[in-house]
Amino acid sequence: MNWIGAIFMLVGAFFFIAGTVGYIRLPDFYSRMHALGKADTLGAFLSLLGVACCTGWTLLSLKIVLVAVFIIIANPTSTHAIARAAFVTGLRPWRNETEAGPQVEPPDPA
């Protein structure tokens, strides 16, 4: 059980590192939300699941699993709310200058 927990925590740490690299490397708000919103949710979820595996079948591990479920529900929702608020208030997504694609126009802030 300890080994399963350690593997879970290592995979969770990998997702945390991937999310942090995305946060540092990506150019604008939306792509950073894109990187962190998913990677950090999964990283926290897997880390907590690993901790729950290491504590064994106790009330404590049940509480940790409940925290993990809470995170996996609440974290994407808050990401959605923040990104939506940014788009509605008129923050434009980043475009590559050399690539003349169709612009995504956010609605005018009233």
Binding site: F70, I73, A74, T77, A81
Partner: peptide, 17 residues
């Protein structure tokens, strides 16, 4: 009310918890 079904539904689930 918040103009996003996702946020409203998740809040509805989470508030009692």
């Amino acid at each position: 009310p918040y103009d996003s079904v996702t946020v409203r539904t998740v809040a509805k689930i989470l508030i009692p918890l």
